[in-house]
Design a protein around this nucleic acid. Structure first.
Lengths: 229, 229
DNA sequence: GAGTGGTCTAGACCACTGT
DNA sequence: CAGTGGTCTAGACCACTCC
């Protein structure tokens, strides 16, 4: 199995520090030639490395060495910005969209909304250490929050609900899965369509035991470790 | 993108019920010919389908349609057998090995053991609905459990500790990640080396706040959904 | 022994990125 | 513009599974 030897060779270059976090690997053609093989075999090796989180790919830009992972506890951490801050990572958030929409089926079910309910939906892009890392979706039922439609695109919804409605989560219901990137996600994150993302869904529940906020973080799997204490 | 069309076509056959859970797909060569393409392109399509958990592959045997997922709460569910029972799945456990070993570095750290500690290590294969589904590793520190070395290969370690040492978990520390299959795992589960597994690590903590059992479940990702309430 | 997936070769053209 | 990855073709041989 040639591709396993190539995988190990590249892996060693990374472990030994020859290739550092964020660095770009040589092009597939160059690598293939230097291992005397074809691009297909080489890509097989890189795909395996990517699965173990050592490297990642940006669409049509090339392969890069992954950074360390962010430790994330979805049961307690509702504010992703704080998670980044705690671990002293450089991050930036930007709004992709903020709209009032008819609740999609899955959202309505999770939040236990009646038919034809509207939700405020915010979509955001998280950039971590200069890399487009995650897309986040947040949904808050309009009914529970009058005047919420006026919320600013760039506001932090979690913070906003806490400040303006004194709504803070007592606990979260959490779901973790791997899933292929959607079209929006792949184009936003510059990754190939259908590539693997870690999907973390949190449903915040208030002290009256009512779900009031649903947020989904879809993040490159090599960037995060899920740890629950 | 031909492979996306092929993916969708196969997906539709599954959704529509033409191909049912557990059924084997036609061979790659047959499928490739019926879509007028090459095996490489066809495999690209199948790999994408596999990522979304719709199909899975067994080494040199072919591609199969996945079953529904098992819902698993790693914070509360320490006995995997009960998880299977609750969802009325047919399952079987068999012992791969049971030995007394010097605690590997990572295990010693997690269980906070001094150097040169021995642990009882059980390795098991879980077969679900006829499919080799998961490999489980369990580690219990020998010091805390005198005479434990006499434990039967086929015993349930969780149950054994509860009955013989009144040791029941108050809470669990949990880690969830995706990881490539090791050699042991791929040969045991009949999957190709390095293919993706969901890895769930649980550290059971007793009422004196001491870690007394570490278990790792490595399961095909299309078989499980992680849900924490 | 026939058929399967596992791996590999040696090319090709395209859309896009970066300069 | 040159170079990159994205996608695809048309084969090949091997080790293994299943009958």
């Amino acid at each position: 199995m040639q591709y396993l030897m190539i995988k190990d060779a590249i892996e060693e270059q990374i472990e030994s520090g020859m290739l550092k976090s964020g660095h770009k690997l040589p092009s597939e053609r160059v690598l293939a030639e230097s291992f005397s093989t074809t691009r297909i075999t080489l890509r097989e090796a890189l795909n395996h490395l990517a699965l173990s989180g050592k490297v990642y790919k940006e669409e049509r830009r090339g392969w890069f060495v992954s950074t360390d992972t962010l430790s994330f506890n979805p049961v307690t951490d509702t504010d992703f910005a704080k998670v980044c801050q705690k671990q002293k990572w450089h991050y930036a958030v930007s709004s992709i969209s903020a709209q009032r929409v008819l609740a999609p089926k899955e959202i309505a079910e999770t939040l236990q909304l009646p038919p034809f309910s509207y939700v405020i939906m915010q979509t955001k892009l998280w950039t971590i250490e200069g890399r487009k890392a995650a897309v986040q979706y947040q949904y808050a039922p309009e009914k529970q929050f009058s005047n919420i439609a006026m919320i600013d695109e760039d506001a932090n919804l979690t913070e906003y609900l806490k400040v303006h409605y004194l709504c803070e989560s007592q606990k979260n219901r959490v779901k973790v899965e791997v899933a292929p990137a959607t079209e929006l996600e792949s184009s936003t994150l510059n990754i190939s369509s259908g590539s693997m993302l870690m999907s973390i869904t949190q449903t915040a529940i208030n002290n009256q035991n009512i779900s009031y906020l649903l947020q989904v973080l879809r993040i490159s799997h090599d960037l995060v470790t899920i740890e629950i204490e």
